[in-house]
Design a binder for these strands. Structure first.
Lengths: 174, 174
DNA sequence: CATCAATACTTGACAGATCAATTATTTACT
DNA sequence: AGTAAATAATTGATCTGTCAAGTATTGATG
């Protein structure tokens, strides 16, 4: 009658997992999904998604420098093949501005607007608090362990098929 | 010049993370996204998504018993508020069948079809292999550690806001 | 046994993701 | 200089996700 496995209970799976990596995969996907939803709940009342929030943070990190579209894509936490339209939506909401780069007219440089900065200002505390809340059952030592294990895992993933983060090239100027 | 933090490099973030939980949150979302993409790549050639695969596995687990729609929803790895349409798509592909329950005509009972079972038969090995590949940089002991940490984390998440997995009620019969 | 609440979905409307072209511009080569 | 290849982004088509509101059916109560 021992629980055997937490996720097995959670998803009401009858048969136990044959191997640890199967259980770990499921646990990873599920835990991440739950975290994602809590973060969404924190930003959605303000009319943006977690991905959009992520873009705004990237742009604030560079502010007052601008960042070209595909640079943003490589800095995203989750891959975003639809980066153009993601930026379209942020621009429509006046949270960012875009201008074509003069030196390289293929590029489009993105900058966070004052409204964008203001929105981030409102969201910083709630987001931090939400994340802290999510992790407060995990002591710091364990949190660091988790980071290590996830890093280790990603390293393995990248060996077979690297993500789209090529080393950044030269700086840009409008 | 020490790397300081892996994800910090990966997403080219300038400032180091203020707290471990921030880094862990990002690492979790990113790792899960990468895993998700690899699993997608394995099932998409066969015309289904990871979520659809998940539904088929749930139905195979119950086969030849049928499972009502919302029961499926509670057993999903990732929450799926759009379960009806997810099932619509599977039904359109003839991978499942749906019939209204006679005892409780509000319910719709879902069963995996022979075509669905056949598809799963084709996908079982590739999916297992993909997952094994993803985890082969992580020794089993570490994998088990990861499971524990994720379980620990989810438990904390659920204390504040439980997922939609209420304890299953009585059995169903067509 | 009539009514009210709860349950189990379903539907509509719309935002977001993904892939495969396509366009514009720049770089590399002859 | 002139052309090919590479780069940066955009667009169209199509699918999936999400929320709120709606329908049908059942259970619970007076």
């Amino acid at each position: 009658m021992t629980p055997e496995s937490k996720i097995q209970q959670e998803i009401r799976q009858k048969k136990p997992f044959a191997s640890a990596f199967q259980e770990a995969g499921i646990a990873l996907l599920r835990t991440s999904d739950q975290l994602q939803r809590r973060l969404s709940a924190a930003v959605e009342p303000h009319g943006i998604t977690v991905q959009q929030f992520n873009v705004l943070r990237i742009l604030r990190g560079a502010h007052p420098e601008a960042v070209p579209t595909l640079e943003i894509a490589t800095r995203m936490i989750e891959q975003a093949p639809g980066i153009t339209r993601l930026l379209d939506r942020l621009e429509a909401k006046k949270l960012i501005q875009r201008v074509r780069c003069r030196k390289d007219r293929r590029r489009v440089l993105c900058t966070i607007s004052d409204a964008g900065l203001a929105l981030l200002g409102e969201l910083d505390q709630p987001m931090l608090a939400t994340l802290r809340d999510c992790f407060d059952s995990l002591p710091e030592a364990k949190t660091r362990q988790l980071i290590q294990l996830l890093d280790n895992l990603r390293e393995g993933l990248y060996r077979k098929c690297p993500p789209l983060n090529p080393p950044t090239q030269e700086e840009n100027h409008s």
